[in-house]
Amino acid sequence: MTGDPRAISMTVNGREVTLTVEPRVSLADALRQDLGLTGTHVGCEHGVCGSCTVLVDGTAVRSCLLFAVQAEGTAVETVEGLARGSALHPLQEAFRRHHALQCGFCTPGVLMTLVELLRADPCPTEAAVRDALSGNLCRCTGYQPIVAAALDAATVLAAEAAP
């Protein structure tokens, strides 16, 4: 019958998972509803707000525009995988220092977008940060503290990476 569920496997935050989903189920819904990873938020379901951004094989994607079946065999990273055990990731720490989140709804998508940016460009300019962020809507912060946090986190991460 049209759209019968199928079993798929993928790695999520380093853990191998298998789930059975209809092809029409978005990766966002599968993460949230089937895997209980509710940190990834759904804000528009048409690919504009960026709240649902996750990394698939290291690349930031809108998980509302990717069907879960398409992620079969990939490595998915979500906001839940960001912290280092009990310690926050430097980006998360910087967000707290700079008050780069208010309601926190867009925050997971913003964080994952910036994780991709900082991996590819460890010392981004403010313009590069704003360009990366331009696909993530935030209604609370006015973006300025997010930009400051990203630049601050880049400095911290660079210091960590230095020998």
Partner: peptide
């Protein structure tokens, strides 16, 4: 805003 059902092929 959930997609209607469809068959899925991944050649």
């Amino acid at each position: 805003m959930k997609a209607p059902p469809f068959d899925y092929h991944r050649p």
